[in-house]
């Protein structure tokens, strides 16, 4: 009979040690007996306690603006809209009555910029293809709501977030982006101050 023997008891001992490890007093008991306890409980009680996620953690894109919300980097070129694999981005350029693009801070700008959170798959392709580093990945993840076609569609106002915010959530990535933008500005400044952003540079390398 394999049942009768010390294996049964030693198995029970292992379980009892695991049981004690989950309590602070149990860890004290184990230490007094001379057993080195490990950290028994690994559960993070989510709504009360939030896990510290890695810096590279990403969930949903947002639009970056510099200084003021009207000074957004996006020029409504619609590259991200076309590259988006699940096609969750919808962009309409701001135009005047004659159908000419409106310019703000020397750049065209989107009138409508919607992203459907329930379709977005967090692939980050929009960030990779954007020539202006205008769209970046956010790390908020509590986006669920009941309004499928209202609250879950993020419009331009809700997508706009400052460059400082980008620095605060992804400092490493933001530093690289800043470097690239500075390099581009230095290159563009002597030649043509008239049309900044009209000639898109090569897509930035993937980070």
């Amino acid at each position: 009979m394999a049942l009768i023997g010390t294996g049964v008891l030693s198995g029970m001992g292992v379980v009892f040690k695991t049981f004690l490890e989950t309590y602070p007093w149990g860890r004290v008991v184990l230490r007094t007996v001379g057993v080195k306890p490990t950290n028994g409980l690994v559960t993070v009680e989510y709504p009360d306690v939030k896990q510290q996620h890695a810096e590279r953690f990403r969930y949903f894109p947002f639009l970056v603006y510099d200084q003021t919300p009207d000074n957004l980097r996006c020029v409504a070129c619609r590259i991200c809209e076309q590259e988006c694999p699940p096609q969750c981005i919808h962009i309409i350029m701001e135009k005047d009555e004659q159908g000419r693009p409106v310019k703000n801070h020397g750049r065209t700008l989107p009138k409508v910029f919607d992203i459907d959170t329930s379709v977005c798959m967090s692939c980050r392709i929009c960030v990779d293809v954007c020539p202006f580093d205008a769209i970046e990945m956010d790390n908020t993840y509590e986006l669920s709501s009941e309004g499928r076609f209202t609250e879950m569609i993020y419009d331009k106002q809700r997508l706009l977030k400052s460059d400082e915010y980008f620095h605060s959530i992804h400092p490493e990535e933001a530093a690289v982006v800043d470097q690239r933008l500075a390099a581009k500005k230095a290159k563009a400044a002597p030649s043509a101050p008239s049309q900044p952003g009209a000639s898109p540079a090569a897509p930035p390398p993937a980070i």
């Binding site: 379980v15 695991t18 049981f19 490890e21 028994g40 690994v42």
Partner: peptide
């Protein structure tokens, strides 16, 4: 509660 602790969990909280 007990079985949860034996499986490194909290059990009902």
């Amino acid at each position: 509660k007990l079985i949860a602790r034996m499986q490194n969990r909290f059990g009902p909280t």
